[in-house]
Design a binder for these strands. Structure first.
Lengths: 175, 175
DNA sequence: GGAAATCTACTCGGATACCGCGTGTCCGAGTTATGGTGG
DNA sequence: CCACCATAACTCGGACACGCGGTATCCGAGTAGATTTCC
């Protein structure tokens, strides 16, 4: 098991598909089926990104999601915090003040300042967040684009609009 | 909720009490009651530290735990890994190869190398582990000792041996 | 008096329940494009 | 020909189960020490 759940992974991958000038917003179902993951689950992740101001949702039959900022302004840290809820690395319970010798009256010297163990964890947490905060969605997209063939972006766009038109044709109001 | 569970906290606090030249090993029950936490729970954490070679257990009626190495050689990272099991920060599921356009045949360029998202997570994980690996139990103990009054170490030792003798007197073979 | 046997209490260690969060799914409210209709 | 309207499908968003890991607890096997007993 890992510290970050799969929601973070899905969320980041969805954002990668939203990079670049999309003609129309991409719905959560399209994003899910494009990646071969559960649409219901993706539909629960994207609203979190919207509340955090990372994506912007359009409603209605041709609605969907767009990025709410430039990819270079969306850090991986912001995405993780939006989905996981800013959970700290460590939750100090102030064990140091419960020593049996104190008999319930913890002296001031024992509880002053930050617990030594907590301090290490805070440094490690800060170090991790610093690394995540220095990488943006634009960096990720650049790495991906460097590997994919040049035509790939167009193929993705075609697939998305092809889905939209296929739906329109499959469900005509009257034949 | 935090990424590290309370087991890590208990384990590190227990190790802090074991720093310094103890006359006798400290049992898990003594360590638990000294800190005012559940003895049953502490008794489940310490064996993990023993398997990792961090503490060494003595059996029998006067048994208990001692450090298996110098405090300056026990890193916080080793303790965390021993208790939590080296769980990675991120578990990449290779979503990039599931793109619907590939129809199950992921091209080589899409799966070569390390996933961009995974790479960021690996850097962050490494950064965190680096910070945890640079702090030792000796560092923690030094910080605590700087705040506690000089007599505190002796009081702890007295409390521990006092418990042992109290047990011996409370349970005499014959009154 | 000394040594061996026994016995007890205490220790570790693992196997066992309970709980909460994360994962995954489903259904309802709202909105937009569309096709029909009337002027 | 144009504007309006009713319809229907699709969208988001939140409320509902399932499973698993973590938390907390208990009990059994094993051992060191102390007492008793025998020589």
């Amino acid at each position: 098991m890992a510290h970050f759940g799969s929601s973070v992974e899905y969320g980041l991958h969805c954002l990668l598909w939203l990079v670049g000038p999309l003609a129309e917003p991409a719905s959560s179902r399209d994003l899910a089926e494009l990646q071969g993951v559960s649409p219901s689950f993706v539909a629960k992740i994207l609203p979190k990104l919207e509340k955090a101001g990372i994506v912007r949702a359009s409603e209605g039959v041709r609605g969907g999601y767009r990025l709410a900022a430039f990819p270079s302004e969306i850090t991986v840290l912001a995405v993780v915090d939006a989905i996981e809820g800013k959970k700290p690395l460590f939750d100090c319970r102030e064990i140091r003040g419960r020593c049996a010798l104190f008999r319930g009256r913890a002296p001031a010297w024992s509880t002053d300042g930050v617990c030594a163990i907590h301090a290490v964890m805070l440094r490690a947490d800060q170090s991790m967040r610093n690394e995540l905060g220095h990488t943006t969605v634009a960096d990720l997209a650049k790495t991906v684009a460097r590997k994919a063939p040049p035509s790939f972006g167009g193929e993705i766009r075609n697939w998305l609009v092809g889905r939209a038109t296929a739906r329109a044709e499959r469900a005509p109001r009257r034949s």
